[in-house]
Design a protein around this nucleic acid. Structure first.
Lengths: 124, 124
DNA sequence: TTTAACATTGACGTTTACGTAAAGTTCAAT
DNA sequence: ATTGAACTTTACGTAAACGTCAATGTTAAA
């Protein structure tokens, strides 16, 4: 169980950020007898997910939806089906993103090839 | 040459957004005799780049750096070398992103597989 | 047990990326 | 020439995601 400071350092975020994530319902660490936050391994895993989501441009609102969906009680049949459907839609989005990134990479490489050619010509 | 309205509709952004991008130096369309903005094909290409950048979580500040770097006069040897170096670094970042996305996809697929299994068991 | 470091909850401030309304100007069509 | 739609700048407003005090409570070590 880490303190808020330790957790913040581990993930390179501010303590304010951790408190804010709790404020908007993204995290809910246990408290010590004196009401201080205690971050468990599960909290860390969740935080990791949140930060990855952020890295790829998802809003905290969207992230909450995902995190909660995968975190809630998935026992009911309807719930499971909904989760699977949602998850598969997300996977398709990710696939599309990968393709776009690959195209972008190709584009940049082509552009750079042109620059290199130009540089070469300039040297001669 | 498109008007601001036409351009906004084409790219599904507001006219305010286009004016704002100009305000912060991301776009600089020509003006008509009466001072109205006229967007050229080059402006559209640039806007496309900006929107793609946004989609992947880059701030407009970061986007400006990229756009301007690839847009300035690349004539000097030093300039060219710097551009190539910068570009290659960006390509490496993109490669890393692709790998992370692929990992994320795998993770989600595994998770979904688990859910599907659970659903199957429940049916029996 | 006291003290320094760290924690808590407000609450107001800041930046980014626009939204929106006002007041006036230009354009295209009649 | 007129008029309505679209354009202009100016400027204040807003939501998200925190930053930054301030006042107070907790913890761990000496």
């Amino acid at each position: 169980m880490k303190t808020i400071q330790e957790t913040a350092e581990t993930f390179e975020v501010s303590t304010r950020t951790l408190r804010y994530y709790e404020e908007i319902g993204l995290l809910e660490p246990d408290r010590s007898s004196g009401n201080q936050r205690k971050y468990s391994k599960a909290d860390e895993t969740r935080l990791k997910l949140i930060l990855r989501g952020k890295k790829y441009g998802f809003s905290l609102d969207e992230i909450r939806e995902m995190v909660l969906l995968f975190d809630e009680d998935r026992s009911g049949k309807k719930q499971l089906e909904r989760t699977i459907e949602y998850g598969e839609a997300r996977v398709r989005e990710i696939e599309a993103s990968i393709k776009e990134f690959q195209a972008l990479k190709q584009e940049m490489e082509d552009l750079l090839e042109g620059f290199k050619q130009k540089l070469k010509e300039e040297k001669e």
